[in-house]
Design a protein around this nucleic acid. Sequence first.
RNA 1: CGGGGUGUAGCGCAGCCCGGUUAGCGCGCUUCGUUCGGGACGAAGAGGUCGGAGGUUCAAAUCCUCUCACCCCGACCA
Length: 474
Amino acid sequence: MAKGITKRDRDYAQWYIDVVLKGDMADYSPVKGCMVIKPNGYGVWENIQRNLDRLFKETGHVNAYFPMFIPESFLKKEAEHVEGFAPECAVVTHAGGKALEEPLVVRPTSETIIWSTYKNWINSYRDLPILINQWANVCRWEMRTRLFLRTTEFLWQEGHTAHATFEEAEEETFKMVQVYKRFAEEYLAMPVIAGKKTEQEKFAGALHTYCIEAMMQDGKALQSGTSHHLGQNFAKAFDVKFQDQNKELQYVYASSWGVSTRLIGGMIMSHSDDNGLVIPPKLAPLPVVFVPIWRSDEERDLVLGRARELTQDWDPLFYSVDDRDQYKPGYKFAHWEVRGVPIRIEIGPRDCQNNEVVVVRRDTGEKQAMPMEGLRSKLEAMLEDIQANLFAAAKNRLDTNTRACDEFADYEAHVGEGGFFRIHWCGADACETELQEKTRSTIRCIPFDAPEEEGACIICGKPSARRVLASQAY
RNA sequence: CGGGGUGUAGCGCAGCCCGGUUAGCGCGCUUCGUUCGGGACGAAGAGGUCGGAGGUUCAAAUCCUCUCACCCCGACCA
């Protein structure tokens, strides 16, 4: 048992922070609300980037980069957009030793700067579609922050696409939320519910927003990715028109979509335990660590020699040998465990004699001896099994903590305990607001796979055509 | 912006209520020795503007006033 990780049933928030800090994922920053991402945390982010980038490219997207500073007037061009983001913007008013003529907003999101540029890039239907993604940092001055989940500055990717028709933009918007779902489940091992946000919860400036919602170990929801159909809103705001096949000028349709370093928070809260971090193998900066065991210098040479021999044709990014001699093996076990390394291999004189090693998996703690011969392929298989096992455990938790609920009294009494509730809702803003105010929970989304089902709104009793997903959320 | 809490060595803390030698403890760090298959042990060391300013007092980490910073909880959000 690792020392000092708070039991999550006592105080989940503190447990989470402990895992982040002791897992060497992040540190507090000198600037309030920002965070320092440590190598172990950034390594996970690099793997998220690498793998997501491949999925983006497979779906026809390319990367570009736009400026971090946005003229304040740009932000004001789309009415809903500015209303939604103005309160949380950081604004640069001085630079070069004097006041700027026009203040510059540090991007909270890049729709405006990008659409001001797309205006120059789009004339003809032949210029469409534009399928661009950018990896960037953004800044939102939120009232309250929490490491990874909501920091003042955060890293993300934002896709910004331009299309000739509504249908094509819609297809893109839907496609990308499916990409996110796939990524969350295959890489983060984090099952999600994909669906549509309510009018109140949608992105400021969008026609509608699709999202993926994950369930953390305390039963609360975490919005983990969003994809917005922006319609012609930004094209109109920035006067972006193209001439179609019929020689007519039309406004361009848009989508935007993004996921952020919040995914790392989701990963931590999905899989970690009281011994620390558990990183899914596909995202682990270090999948396998060797802990050599020796007493004498001769044994040290023997064990390290065998480890070197064993791994001579292995990818150096796949493993590391912890040959620090100021620490005992027990210390090293704990050290790598709290950092979430998926597989630990113990190799000592006894093992060398038997031509085997002791393999310990992080997810179950299970130990087993394995022959040195053919080890690499067995480790690959075990990593896949760990990945699958983490997903299965999280999926099981999601399923067993999701239930239909038809009585408001029942909902009100139990929503605070965590879990997802499938409830009927008439679609009225007033009912959604009432639900939020009375229960401090929200409608997370209208799931894509919610079947049509006659029911009565849990608040007002009016007819509802399908169930929506409601829960407390981060 | 409300509610709660914390500022004392690199980290984590005690001491404060009830002022009094040289401000302590654990971890970490340095040196030496013994250890090494689940967070080793012994010995010797290094390391401090007690968040800041003012006040009370013979005397302040401790009491008073002001102030700053950060953390946690809520409203807001990816």
